[in-house]
């Protein structure tokens, strides 16, 4: 069996945005985060599931997330939750991505930017 295809551009800031958005709603551990991404994107965004952890560790290091080990069903899990700094980062990223998506959509639908006055 070969590993599932993944989207190479996935790592360019998108996982960070998705993770922050998911954790804004509730704390989760890594497996839950990956499953939530798969479910909520209809598996459009596919990724080697293990690569989510360096992103989580990086966000934690930057103070955007906190990690806490908790026992669940006899096993220890590391739960991640959003910090106020993470919420601000999410807001900035959301704005950036919304603008980007709007601009791309505008081009795809054949629209043009307003021309400057001569």
């Amino acid at each position: 069996m070969t590993p599932r295809d993944s989207n190479p551009s996935f790592m360019n800031g998108v996982p960070e945005l998705l993770i922050l958005q998911l954790l804004q709603q509730q704390e989760m551990y890594g497996y839950e985060i990956v499953q939530a991404i798969r479910t909520r994107t209809g598996a459009v965004i596919a990724v080697g599931e293990g690569v989510v952890y360096p992103v989580l560790h990086n966000l934690e290091r930057d103070g955007a997330l906190t990690a806490q080990r908790k026992p669940v069903n006899g096993r220890s899990r590391i739960y991640y939750s959003l910090t106020p700094a993470g919420a601000r980062r999410l807001s900035d990223l959301s704005t950036t991505w919304t603008n980007l998506a709007t601009a791309i959509q505008h081009i795809l639908t054949g629209g043009q930017h307003a021309q400057p006055l001569a």
């Binding site: 590993p3 599932r4 080697g48 599931e49 952890y53 360096p54 992103v55 560790h57 990086n58």
Partner: peptide, 19 residues
């Protein structure tokens, strides 16, 4: 297969110089 290849798992971590 789902968790990723050794190459992809290693590259994701090695790409973070802060670690």
């Amino acid at each position: 297969a789902r968790i990723g290849t050794t190459d992809s798992l290693a590259a994701a971590m090695i790409a973070q110089p802060q670690f």
